[in-house]
Amino acid sequence: MTKKPKTLEEWQAQLTPEQFYVCRLQGTEHPFSGKYFKVPANPGVYHCVACDSPLFETSTQFEAGCGWPSFYQPIRPNAVEEREDLSHHMHRVEVVCSQCQSHLGHVFPDGPPPTGLRYCINSVALNFVESKKV
Rank of each mutant, 00 (worst) to 15 (best):
T2Y: 09
K3D: 09
K4E: 06
T7P: 07
T7S: 15
L8K: 15
E9W: 06
W11Y: 15
W11S: 02
Q12V: 02
L15N: 08
T16E: 01
Y21S: 13
V22N: 01
V22R: 00
L25A: 10
H30T: 14
H30C: 03
P31S: 13
P31C: 13
F32I: 06
K38Y: 09
P40W: 11
N42V: 14
Y46M: 07
H47N: 11
A50E: 00
A50W: 02
A50N: 06
C51N: 06
D52T: 15
D52F: 09
T58P: 06
T60V: 05
Q61P: 01
F62I: 09
A64L: 05
A64D: 04
C66I: 06
W68A: 02
F71P: 01
Y72F: 15
P74M: 03
P74C: 03
P77M: 04
E82S: 01
L86V: 12
L86N: 12
H88W: 14
R92A: 09
V93D: 01
V95T: 12
V96I: 15
C97M: 06
C97S: 04
C100A: 04
S102T: 03
S102L: 03
H103Q: 09
L104K: 05
G111Y: 10
G111T: 13
G111C: 09
P113S: 14
P113N: 14
T115P: 07
G116R: 12
L117M: 15
Y119L: 11
C120L: 11
I121C: 09
A125C: 09
L126R: 05
N127S: 13
V129H: 15
V129T: 15
K133P: 00
V134C: 05
